[in-house]
Design a protein around this nucleic acid. Structure first.
Length: 874
RNA sequence: GCACCCGUGGCGGAACUGGCAGACGCGACGGUCUUAGGAGCCGUUGCCGCAAGGCUUGUGGGUUCGAAUCCCACCGGGUGCACCA
């Protein structure tokens, strides 16, 4: 791939080139294809059970082809004799039944507006489009256009994906991002009948979603998204031209333009000529179309309450639509936003003005308040606080069949097909009618065909049709004959996420040829911490960057839940604990044109930075190719060794923070390793370690170090663990000085005499061995070398982790800081078993403290055992 | 705009449940060994002060015997969300 000049990444290359791996990715896809979501049980079930449910009559087919549970129907239709709102399934023609079933699958094909990126020549998932409306990869513009594509029904799992975030030990920020992305919002759907002036002639209604049903009396117009399916039917003849022109313009707009427009606050829109009826007061209200209403959220239609929604307020002012106040704000808001001549005046005047004409205020009031101007013959909300008014309105709507409680999600189904060569082929065949069927399990994997030219069709024209490279593949691959019928393979391929969605499961059992993972391996690894089946469980610790928060981590949770529901894995969540590591950052440099220049060729002089003699500007950013500021790890390894590189990166700071690379700082950890080596090993390579007694103070330091390192490692605080080892090493260097120091002091024999060593020059084995084991996870290579110098022939990796002994953590004497009135004044050393009275008298007798107590009485002494003494004097 | 996280020496950072702030490292300074030092070794190093001593965890307040840690307000930085009805 590199030779061909194509960009690639390793995850993807491995996932799509190892048939033993993608075979099982295709198999999991078939699990999704052959499953449906039971909304009552709230779980995925095999498609066979859909047939069973249909045959038993517990599941019925709704009028619009939706599944209806018999328990949810009300009464029997007098004409058909069937439960209200259902059809006879046995009389359904085969193709309709097939359509019904296909529409229930967790992997299904649908024609929906998708993110089309002509330059990449492929469609993209919502999660792969940036806030600016560009492709995350390559940063190209993305357009919305309807295309028939493979979708995965992740929305069915929205509630469980949200709820089960409670189970996992993840960073708050990552959970927050998933919650935002799922975007659950509780509200009300309200039916607005079409009124006079509608050209449709149908008794159609428009359903809107709102979180503020209490403001329904203030709905003075309605807005449909330009793509709303009813637009054609309702638009009047006079308005047809304008509406059509607006729709075309909106369709041609890229997301980039649309989002830029949103940022400016400007609104565009066109009147359709049609009216709807506000169900609470039977007033006709005009229906507009505008692109500030998104087809992708809610029902693609809104009731506009301009007095209490800032977008509707801007739109109504621009197009001179009426604005009616139905929620009274508090006085402070009125005073802050009211007309200049009334500000600072009486609240009554402001209230009266707001009630009459909210356009005199400078923005919409969107908070909760007290309902006003809100009553009809049956219902009055006036003077009721917003929460109460919401509940009352909801009751009224439900009682009259004009609306009901509803939950909306921002999450959309996952667009799963791509028009690229490098991806797992779908294990799917199409018949002559376009119906889909699964490839037989025994025929997996469906391998990619050999092709000369497998590049995606790139174009700058948003109208360019998608052309999957596999559509140009040899006929021998494209067509499959099964039972005498010629079937065609699916030409789209899966996105890179497919393979990464479950690789952690394959890691548990990578050589298994019978299953994607054996139940034994799943149980052993995923429930290793004593979890029962169905409890959280999952991978013990998963370290990765935040950029996966709503991509890989959401997709993998979804697949895992499907596999869990189908009994293929035993835990509902894949990753028990997640840790987001920070990025290594480095300086990068831009020349006068803003072009980035290689950081390694920068000269620093005269307080400035220069590239080939030209001044450049220094910035800071994530280390990588695009900023031309990468440091090749190989070079650092060649110069210092890879243990030094490891140690340096870990010593930079906490794992979750972004850290700045500074090559100069490497010498610190490099020196540590050299000093450590010299404590253990003589210049001639012989070991300095022997079976000598370690002094008590050293034993105590060793056990303190074991404790600190162990706890730091548990917290992933590698920098702290390394610091503790450096301290231990510094102590050893002082006690058992290195060759150079001994020579300087006149040779080994005299060393003890001049105070350089207390127990001879040999380093006690009882310290050296545990220290080596503590070092092993941080600097594994040098630790193995030292282990060999200690006389072992096998790797230390099978050794038990050192344990600290409480007995060595206890000191004979304890040094207490002495505070007087909360201020630190002195320190006293007392025996560890001294009682409070003894500690206090020692504290009072301290030479720094005593003068401060002269002529005063100690009113109170706060003594915290082992911690400190605080004397309160009057 | 809303939400979340974070502010500690010249720098990276440490500090268990509120209990000696600044561990450890870098840098700097001094010494030593050297033909030499951008190597090694030995020291010093939060700030002010000759010292005694005083001050110090973004700023201001609060709780407490005691606050980097808890609470409130503000300032600064980072991240996320955002035409989501």
């Amino acid at each position: 791939l590199k030779r061909l000049g194509l960009s690639y990444d390793w995850d993807r290359a491995i996932a799509t080139t190892d048939p033993e791996y993608y075979k099982w990715t295709q198999w999991i896809f078939l699990q999704l294809y052959n499953a449906w979501f039971d909304p009552i049980a709230r779980k995925a079930r095999p498609i066979e059970e859909l047939f069973t449910e249909l045959e038993s009559g517990r599941l019925l087919v709704g009028i619009e082809g939706e599944p209806v549970f018999s328990g949810n129907t009300e009464g029997v239709d007098a004409v058909t004799g069937l439960p209200v709102g259902t059809r006879k399934i046995h009389e359904l023609p085969a193709d309709e039944l097939r359509l019904f079933i296909d529409n229930q699958r967790l992997a299904y094909m649908d024609e929906v507006p998708v993110n089309w990126c002509p330059q990449l020549g492929t469609v993209l998932a919502n999660e792969e489009v940036t806030n600016e409306g560009r492709s995350e990869r390559g940063n190209y513009p993305v357009y919305r256009r309807p295309l028939r594509q493979w979708m995965l029904r992740i929305t069915a799992f929205a509630d469980r994906l949200l709820e089960d975030l409670e189970l996992v030990d993840w960073p708050a920020a990552t959970k927050m991002m998933q919650r935002n992305w799922i975007g659950r919002s509780e509200g009300t759907s309200v039916k607005f009948p079409l009124g006079m002036g509608s050209s449709s002639g149908l008794d159609d209604e428009i359903i809107v979603f709102t979180t503020r049903p209490d403001t329904l009396f203030g709905a003075t117009y309605m807005v449909l998204s330009p793509e709303h399916p009813l637009v054609d039917a309702i638009t009047s003849a006079e308005q047809f031209h304008d509406v059509n022109a607006y729709r075309i313009a909106a369709g041609e707009k890229s997301d980039v333009d649309r989002i830029a427009e949103a940022g400016s606050g400007a609104k565009t829109g066109v009147f359709t000529g049609a009216f709807a009826v506000n169900p609470v007061n039977n007033e006709p209200i005009p229906i507009w179309i505008a692109d500030y209403v998104l087809m992708g959220y809610g029902t693609g239609a809104i009731m506009a309450v301009p007095a209490h929604d800032s977008r509707d307020f801007a739109f109504a002012k621009q197009f001179k639509l009426s604005i009616r106040a139905v929620v009274m704000p508090d006085d402070a808001w009125l005073d802050a936003h009211g007309p200049a001549d009334l500000r600072g005046g009486t609240p009554d005047a402001l209230r009266a003005t707001f009630r009459q004409d909210p356009t005199k205020f400078d923005e919409a009031f969107t908070d909760h308040g007290t309902a006003i101007n809100s009553h009809n013959e049956e219902l009055t909300l006036d003077d009721h606080p917003t929460l109460q008014a919401k509940a009352e309105m909801l009751d009224w709507l439900e009682g009259n069949g004009r609306g009901r409680r509803e939950v909306q999600y921002k999450l959309r189904d996952w667009l799963f097909s791509r028009q690229r060569y490098w991806g797992e082929p779908f294990p799917i065949l199409h018949d002559e009618n376009g119906a889909t069927m699964a490839v037989n399990e025994k025929d997996l994997p469906v391998a990619l065909p050999e092709m000369e030219d497998f590049r995606p069709a790139s174009s700058e024209d948003p109208e360019a049709p998608p052309q999957p490279p596999l559509s140009r593949s040899p006929m021998a691959w494209k067509q499959v004959v099964r039972e005498g019928r010629t079937l065609t393979r699916e030409f789209n391929t899966m996105p890179q996420w497919a393979g990464s969605c479950w690789y952690y499961l394959r890691f548990l059992d990578p050589k298994n040829e019978q299953r994607f993972v054996s139940p034994q391996a799943d149980r052993y690894w995923m429930r290793g911490n004593g979890h029962e089946a169905g409890e959280r469980g999952g991978v013990d610790l998963y370290v990765g960057g935040v950029e996966h928060a709503v991509l890989h981590l959401l997709y993998a949770r979804f697949w895992h839940k499907v596999l869990f529901d189908l009994g293929k894995v035993s835990t509902p969540e894949p990753f028990a604990r997640l840790f987001n590591q920070g990025y290594i950052q480095a300086f990068y440099y831009e020349d006068a044109r803003g072009v980035r220049v290689p950081a390694e060729q920068i000269e620093e002089r005269d307080g400035g930075f220069f590239y080939q003699g030209q001044p450049v500007i220094r910035h800071m950013g994530k280390m990588g190719k695009s900023l031309k500021n990468a440091i090749a790890p190989d070079d650092i390894c060649a110069q210092y060794g890879c243990d030094t590189l490891r140690l340096y990166e870990m010593y930079l700071g906490p794992l979750d923070q972004s850290k700045i690379w500074r090559t100069a700082d490497i010498s610190g950890v490099h020196r540590f390793l050299q000093r450590l080596w010299r404590v253990f090993v003589n210049e001639d390579g012989s070991s300095r370690v022997a079976d000598v007694e370690a002094p008590l103070e050293l034993q105590r330091l060793l056990h303190r170090t074991i404790k600190r390192v162990t706890e730091a490692m548990d917290n992933l605080a590698f920098n702290v663990a390394i610091a503790a080892l450096i301290e231990l090493n510094n102590d050893l260097v002082k006690r058992y000085a290195s060759d150079e120091v001994i020579r300087a002091a006149g040779g080994g024999a005299e060393a003890a005499a001049v105070g350089l060593g207390t127990g001879g020059l040999a380093v006690p084995r009882s310290v050296a061995e545990p220290m080596t084991l503590l070092l092993a996870p941080l600097a594994p290579h040098i630790a193995e070398e030292l282990w060999e110098k200690l006389g072992y022939r096998d790797s230390l990796s099978r050794q038990a982790w050192p344990k600290w002994e409480q007995a060595f953590l206890i000191q004979d004497r304890v040094e207490y800081p002495v505070q007087v009135n909360g201020k630190l004044k002195g320190k006293v050393s007392v025996p560890a078993d001294a009682d409070d009275a003894a500690i206090q008298s020692a504290a009072c007798a301290d030479e720094k403290v005593a003068p401060l107590l002269a002529g005063k009485t100690v009113k109170k002494a706060i003594i915290v055992k082992g911690r400190m003494v605080n004397l309160i004097v009057g």
